[in-house]
Design a protein around this nucleic acid. Structure first.
Length: 155
DNA sequence: CCAGGGATCCCCT
DNA sequence: GGGGATCCCTGGC
């Protein structure tokens, strides 16, 4: 319900902007693999590598809507919340999400095109001209959208 | 509003 | 090869 695109090595907000390192290697790898990183000392963020091998692009998943109840009623609106609710950690880093075992991605119903909104990405003010690019996408009105986008209607 | 927490990668020896 | 600023965030004040 909410994602952000990181579009290549030249994108100064992308972790791969300093080239291949042990951490960013997976982003340069084949598409369909998970890039999971630890941030702020306590949260995991889940990304999906999207471009062909050698091209460093990925999508950060910032919010989802559960199709079934989450044990404990954990929330899934927010990048750190959804990884906690889905038990995604560094153990899933580099995982091939196109195979059916374990964590995987399958096609689902697409949201109505007209309900998709876009705007600048979160927390990338340091990225110069890239900070303003509208590479964040969300489904308007979805409860799976992170609170940063709904400051006036906290839940 | 802001502290917490640790990996990462600058940039300087 | 080591110190330190920074960080694709959240919960609790």
């Amino acid at each position: 319900m909410e994602t952000e695109a990181y579009v290549g090595e030249h994108d100064l907000a992308c972790h791969a902007c300093h080239g291949r390192t042990p951490r960013t290697e997976v982003i340069f790898g084949p598409p369909g693999h998970a890039y999971v990183y630890f941030v702020y000392g306590m949260h995991w963020c889940f990304n999906v590598v999207t471009a062909a091998e050698g091209v460093a692009s990925a999508v950060l998943v910032r919010g989802v809507e559960p199709a079934v109840g989450i044990p404990g009623g954990l929330r899934t609106d927010g990048p750190g919340r959804l990884t906690r609710a889905l038990c995604i950690t560094g153990a899933e880093n580099k995982l091939d999400l196109t195979t059916a075992s374990g964590l995987s991605i399958r096609a689902g119903p697409a949201p109505a095109r007209r309900s998709v909104r876009r705007g600048p990405r979160v927390g990338v003010d340091y990225a110069g001209v890239w900070a303003g690019r509208p590479y964040r996408f969300w489904v308007e009105g979805s409860p799976g959208v992170s609170r940063v986008l709904r400051p006036l209607s906290p839940r």
